[in-house]
Design a protein around this nucleic acid. Structure first.
Lengths: 200, 200
DNA sequence: ATGGCTATAAACACAATGTCCATATATTTC
DNA sequence: GAAATATATGGACATTGTGTTTATAGCCAT
């Protein structure tokens, strides 16, 4: 159990909106990261925030939207894609960091659940794309574009496809876990793709 | 609304187990393929099958297990991986068929929802691995192994990783749809990986 | 035919959703 | 400072779904 200082039973009446909103986001993030998406309910978030369910329904259109806001409130944006000029090294480093994040942190272990829930929640699907996947994908695509312009990649390669063959492969092992997600895997992804797996 | 001939109100008392079971599976498959996983509830399956909820709870331990059984009842196994001896052509053909299945059929559109639900249902996760992903992955791995033994692939390549860089990339575009899943994409996947995307 | 197995209806407790209301009060406006 | 506005609140409600218990009814094998 994560020990919130207080469930804080409040009196009736209005409180500053910003404060309530902050409290709700904190509660949503905490519940999501400790209990996971299966146990994430509007009711529990409201109780944990010491707020009324009606208030949540007023501001968030769906459970998914609330969960994602709670996720970012707890985790922060954390976007970075260092560019050293060596695309092979940069991709490997970035993928290893991603593997570490997904395997060894609470935030990482929750993300597959959010993606999973998005499969039946169009609201969350759109938000996840806008605020999570699209910005991250864009960073990788830009790095690959720069590498191509430096002459490190073939001219006819579509960076968008490359992203799917690197990060998409990792998500595959996360979401459909037949095989483990390891550092060696991350390294093999880059090796295979840059050098090619074909003979001659 | 899908118009079943009759909700068929039956009297109390026992009916042949096999018949009930068949009817439940049919109902589960129908509901899953027409309404999707979000609307898939034990209650609706029971009503559609003209069966008692208690009967469902007796035979299926979870909603996910019932959904997967219904899926296979409706779709069938459909496993095939033709091997013409040309690994590039075989992979491309197989991936194009996969893209078509996922994009243009009801069964395909439901699979991401099952994978999504599995993220918060360990029962379904295990069943999906055993009965869906593992057998399919094994077929692809075997084909790649044979190609390597024919000398069409580098000796040091791990077929398991290659599978993630081909099918995993497709699942990525299915589950986190930033970019469209197209035939051209399927072809680019094989091209990139066999020839490599690096310069020189 | 008889006894065991199993499907059935009905009822229950529970949890969660989503929407009402009337009331209380912080903040804004005059 | 007083009035108006916005908004959070508890409590209530109907609805849906879960998962279980109970007593009853009928198929099937022996």
């Amino acid at each position: 159990m994560t020990q919130s200082p207080e469930p804080v039973r409040r009196g009736r009446g209005r409180r500053p909106a910003a404060e309530v909103r902050r409290e709700i986001l904190r509660a949503a993030g905490e519940l999501l990261l400790t209990e996971g998406m299966a146990a994430f309910t509007i009711e529990k978030v409201a109780a944990l925030a010491g707020a009324s369910r009606v208030t949540l329904y007023k501001w968030w259109p769906s459970k998914g939207a609330l969960a994602l806001d709670g996720y970012f409130d707890a985790v922060g944006p954390t976007l970075a894609f260092p560019d050293t000029g060596d695309i092979a090294a940069d991709l490997t480093a970035q993928l290893r960091a991603f593997v570490h994040l997904m395997r060894d942190t609470r935030a990482g272990r929750v993300m597959p659940e959010l993606v999973g829930h998005a499969q039946t929640d169009p609201e969350l699907s759109a938000l996840l794309r806008e605020r999570y996947s699209a910005p991250r994908r864009a960073l990788a695509v830009e790095a690959l574009e720069r590498a191509r312009q430096r002459g490190q990649l073939r001219e006819d390669v579509d960076p968008e496809v490359v992203v799917d063959q690197l990060w998409g492969a990792c998500y595959h092992r996360l979401l459909i876990p037949d095989q483990p997600l390891t550092d060696e895997f991350a390294e093999a992804l880059v090796r295979n793709l840059l050098a090619g797996i074909g003979r001659r």
